[in-house]
């Protein structure tokens, strides 16, 4: 994995703590955080400029929720890999997110290991 080009990561979560937590916990040398956003609208505004390969996406956020944001991001860049990180643990939500184009689902709260495994899985697919 080290031989490949650096992946660009964007973090979308309305909680400051969660954004910093994800940024701090990811342990990949070839993963570079190119932007963080607190809701779907911010995420969309930042997306074209930051052009991330991998996005972590909260679902319950003000202004534009994660489900809608996933669909818009995938429309902009079909190859983007999206990891949903949410406390919403019901299956219909998970299916809906996957159907919109998400590639992984991680339940809050999560351990560093769970986060890194989920991101690694996404980078393999990217």
């Amino acid at each position: 994995m080290n031989a490949r080009r650096a992946f660009k990561l964007m973090i979308v979560d309305d909680s400051n703590i969660m954004r910093r937590r994800i940024e701090r916990s990811q342990q990949f040398e070839d993963l570079q955080v190119v932007g963080t956003a607190g809701n779907g609208v911010e995420a969309l505004a930042l997306f074209s400029q930051a052009d991330p390969d991998v996005v972590t996406m909260d679902l319950t956020m003000p202004q534009m929720d994660g489900i809608e944001c996933i669909g818009r991001l995938v429309a902009l860049k079909p190859a983007v890999r999206i990891l949903v990180i949410s406390a919403l643990a019901d299956k219909a939500t998970a299916v809906e997110a996957m159907e919109r184009g998400a590639n992984g689902f991680l339940n809050k709260p999560f351990t560093d290991r769970q986060l890194n495994e989920a991101i690694a899985d996404l980078m393999r697919r990217a």
Partner: peptide, 11 residues
């Protein structure tokens, strides 16, 4: 939707 996802390799 779920059935459809089973055919993809998204997850």
């Amino acid at each position: 939707k779920y059935i459809k996802l089973l055919w993809g390799d998204r997850a």
